[in-house]
Design a binder for these strands. Structure first.
Lengths: 222, 222, 222, 222
DNA sequence: CATGAATGAGCGTTCATTCAT
DNA sequence: AATGAATGAACGCTCATTCAT
């Protein structure tokens, strides 16, 4: 609502610039590459302009400010990450076919890792900038909380009710999931992004397996 | 304060070797606070000077460059405190009393979390800067590898030999430990550091418990 | 203005090649004036900006560094104007009409003094800066040697062969010429440049006369 | 006289600091070396202090300002150059033994070149600084004029009266002498000071010979 | 006398942003 | 829509100078 609402602003922003010109396209691409490589603060607009083959003024004609350029880069990524994930992904994954939590978790992990793998650079930019921007943090996390956590909570509750999951509080299970998957993504894509190697399917299986060991309902046989 | 407090240690040490002046101390303290809060690049030397109540020139008289001020803050943390601590910690933890891997892991986690808790700000600076500086990264990782990973590898091997741990490759186990503990530290101290709340002992127990579920040797009874 | 005026030439040339803006011209003109007056090191960029009526940033947009501004002032003088001029001058002077060395010397002296007279300020800058910059020195002297000394050597040899000049080594004669003419230029344009008075023709005649007394072949009558 | 009088100030200054301490000695020596090497403006007081092995404060305790340090370096040189030259040197050279102007000129040249040779560095400093300081220029040149030029004028007049010198105006002869000898000193000691080689006696003879060719009374026999 | 920590004005330089064309 | 010259505030840094010890 208020102008302080970052996400609203972001959405309004992209709505304004519906039809991207060639130059805009070039600017966005170049900005993503350079922001990921050297960080937002260490990339000057003149550098972007030069690398994109446009005049510096052109950047400001389209994006107004450098901060706004950053948002224009992050926004589609976030839109795809958050609401889409919340709706499409869950709908897709939560059909009757998904027999158990492990299958769900594996499908979710694969889906999201594939997405981030395709948007490596923007993910890097996003994580790095979140560390420095209280504004981003304060706007994004409630949003995540609403859209993602609550849906996951439902799923967890569902499988807890089916007796598949250990009887820890749902919030605890969520935190564990978040820490482990988040830690994995952070170390692979942000902290040590040099390695060209793609994420191995077996690696994901391993992590899911590991997580399940921790949260699967222990058999009563003992 | 406890021996874990790095700043105390640094101050004590530099007092001995180079007689730090009052102003120097004020500068270091202020720099740590501001770097942690807003990041190195987003903190200007004039801001530090103003906040520390000194003239800007005084910073440069003592540290030469802003980069050097950062190093003066980080290097003691990395080059002096960590290795001796690593040794102390492992010596302390690896006595005969440590009956099993779970005890070791819990002791290690508590020890390190306590350490970082007392050096929150430097830890934040360190993580944030590593993301932007290949140089720092390249200086740090071999170092960590030598001092930490190899020691942990030994411990893991030891308990694997005793049949306590699952038969995964040691490197895999290490990665899981690193991801989970690192992810926890990152999310608690860097990503979402607002919360004043101290880390709960029970939370650590929970994580250790969780890890152990994943890497404990499964009983053959099945 | 005459073709001898270097600034006119520079301005004309840069206009052709890189379309100098009004502000750029103002900066160059002001820089030349101030560098000549107070020396390069004692002239601040903010002073130049203020005197030129531009923002300080404008200087750096066009010249990148203060050193570069100096070079932008000196290099055309050295790399473009001097050599072509050297060629023109020698071609012009060394026609058959030049009956003897004295005529040649007088013509050369007048030509060069006129040239420097129209480029007083750049000459001052050049001499002052050469005293402090080994780099400038090392770039300049080989250059002068090739373009000036070797040509003069030829002329001296030519007239020595015709029996007009004393039988001193050519290098000795050159040194005398250089010392006397150089000393004259230095004292008139650099050491004591206050005097607005233009160089008197009769003064040049006098010096040439004096030099010729020293290097003319003495009559064998004694 | 007035406080504006540089030479008075200089003299007053040295009178104050009669007995030099060891540290003062070291400071002066170091300053001479560094000023000559890198120029006055490019040498910082902290650099001098470090190289001299004293605290920076010590320089200011003794010399008050950096400018004053420069004067303390130049003053003894100038005192020796000007009044002494005017008195002692002329007295010594102008005895009856000096049969002709050529002998006088040769003796004067040798004497002064030897002096400058022994004070190469201070001479370099002096010439370079005169180029930038109107104050130095305005104070020194009248002084030179009074003490040196007038005495030389007398000598020239003396030998003109004896019919040894050409009938040019005395001022013209002086200028020629000044230009040639000055040009020689400048090029040897300031412009191209690299060469370690000492000034050759025969070289002086050559120059004196050359000058005499230009100003000797032409014999009427031809 | 000597020290060296502290100062603060001034430097060269960068850069996001504006605006006339 | 696109340009790029121009801006000026802010930056990291230097240095002659002061002063308490």
């Amino acid at each position: 609502m208020s102008k302080n609402n970052l996400l609203d602003a972001m959405i309004a922003q992209t709505k304004l610039s519906k039809k991207q010109t060639d130059k805009q396209q070039k600017i966005t691409e170049t900005a993503i590459k350079l922001f990921a490589e050297k960080g937002f603060a260490n990339t000057s607009t003149s550098e972007i302009a030069k690398a994109a083959g446009v005049a510096e003024g052109t950047i400001f004609r389209h994006y107004g400010t450098k901060d706004n350029l950053l948002l224009s880069v992050l926004l589609p990524f976030l839109k795809e990450s958050l609401p889409t994930m919340a709706e499409d992904v869950f709908n897709e994954l939560l059909t009757d076919q998904v027999a158990n939590f492990e299958d769900f978790l594996r499908a979710l992990a694969k889906n999201r890792i594939a997405f981030i793998n395709e948007n490596k650079e923007i993910f890097q930019i996003f994580v790095k900038e979140v560390l420095y921007s209280e504004e981003l943090k304060n706007e994004i996390f409630p949003y995540i909380s609403e859209n993602i956590f609550q849906r996951i909570a439902k799923v967890v509750d569902h499988f807890k009710a089916r007796g598949e999951l250990v009887d820890l509080p749902t919030i605890t299970i969520q935190r564990l999931l978040f820490t482990i998957i988040g830690g994995f993504l952070f170390s692979r894509f942000v902290l040590l992004p040099n390695q060209e190697e793609t994420i191995d399917e077996s690696e994901i299986d391993q992590i899911v397996q590991f997580i399940m060991d921790g949260i699967r309902k222990k058999s009563q046989s003992e």
